[in-house]
Write a protein that binds this DNA or RNA. Structure first.
Lengths: 197, 197
DNA sequence: TCGAAATTCGAACAACTGTTCGAACCCCAT
DNA sequence: ATGGGGTTCGAACAGTTGTTCGAATTTCGA
């Protein structure tokens, strides 16, 4: 890896951490300079400006999420198992990349213009992926409920950045299992086994 | 109601809307002046500064949430019914006060110092309320799971501000029913009826 | 060793921010 | 009518922000 790419990577990693801690708008370019060990002006050799920094953090993180999700769903066959795989991947990836994922979740509308549209388009694809999955899991469910359920699941998973402590009592595998149990048990199975369909 | 209180109320309502649309840090006092019909300096007769505006919006909204939740849980007797009442109240209140609740959820860490501690203390009480409820609903569940499940439920409910459209296909009652079904079916009932635990 | 390209950075700028201050205005009891 | 308290606001201030620019420094193949 070229030194240039290494330094850009380093800058992005530090930026993600600071964005996650202080929030994008409260973070100054001087904060980022101090956190990355570069000078204020020096960062502009690697990046057009503050917003491109945020865009790169979000786009690169989202690309990894998408790739991992497609891989996680390719293995299993049963729709419920694929759904569980999707959930497990999203939650464990989130917990393993807390800073980046917090920036992706919490600063979703901090981008503007073309960059905002680009990230939103990726997000749309990711949501569609889950909605198609839910269609296989619960075909009899009304479309409005299925769509809302998808967002409810994303809510459970993305809210993590507000409370989850990686050093705490529950590890990300247990958390993924819990969320999968709640959603699959409540959405996919409740109709036939609990509420009597 | 005195004219003074009416104008303060009006200012807070407009501020909540603008904070929800643009985010707290991106909205300027000049934005708020334009949105409220006051002059820039005029707002400082009603409020010490920008942060007090955010604090008042959050504290007043949270007080209403707490009062409504206690009332919603006082009626029913069965733990599962009380949990359903809690969920139904939170979701319908959220949908009926989207701007304020978005500011409460999304700008949770935009306050500083004493104001930040005060709102966090209220939040702690509210989370405790749900955790006690979950203890009644699923006493055999490990404490770590129960606590994580509480946050998962708050995630489903608070994520609403990222996607819910009040003019859309699904009204807040249906949404509350769906979320209650997912959580109760997946957390409270799954152990005994689905997973056979 | 030499020189050009790549990389760094101190210093400054222009724009925007929240806040303040004093004068003006309005309302109403006297 | 009039004086005083409650209310409004134009104008300005001091601090902070993202960004730029040109010069200094480093890197490295020939």
């Amino acid at each position: 890896m070229r030194p240039y790419d290494e330094r850009l990577e380093h800058l992005l990693a530090r930026a993600a951490k600071v964005f996650a801690e202080k929030g994008y708008h409260s973070t100054t370019m001087r904060d980022l300079a101090a956190a990355s060990g570069m000078s204020l002006a020096g960062m502009y050799y690697y990046v057009r400006g503050k917003e491109e920094l945020l865009a790169l953090v979000q786009e690169r993180c989202f690309a990894r999420v998408l790739a991992g999700a497609e891989q996680a769903m390719a293995v299993a066959g049963d729709p419920v198992e694929r759904l569980q795989g999707f959930i497990r991947h999203h939650v464990t990836f989130f917990a393993a990349n807390l800073a980046e994922m917090k920036v992706l979740s919490h600063e979703a509308n901090s981008l503007t213009g073309e960059r905002h549209r680009k990230v939103n388009a990726i997000k749309r694809r990711y949501v569609d992926m889950l909605e198609r999955l839910l269609k296989d899991v619960a075909p009899e469910e009304p479309r409005a409920e299925r769509s809302a359920a998808a967002y409810a699941l994303f809510g459970m998973m993305n809210w993590i950045y507000n409370w989850y402590d990686p050093a705490g009592e529950i590890d990300s595998d247990r958390l993924a299992g819990l969320i999968a149990r709640i959603f699959v048990g409540g959405f996919a199975e409740a109709r036939s086994t609990v509420q009597g369909g």
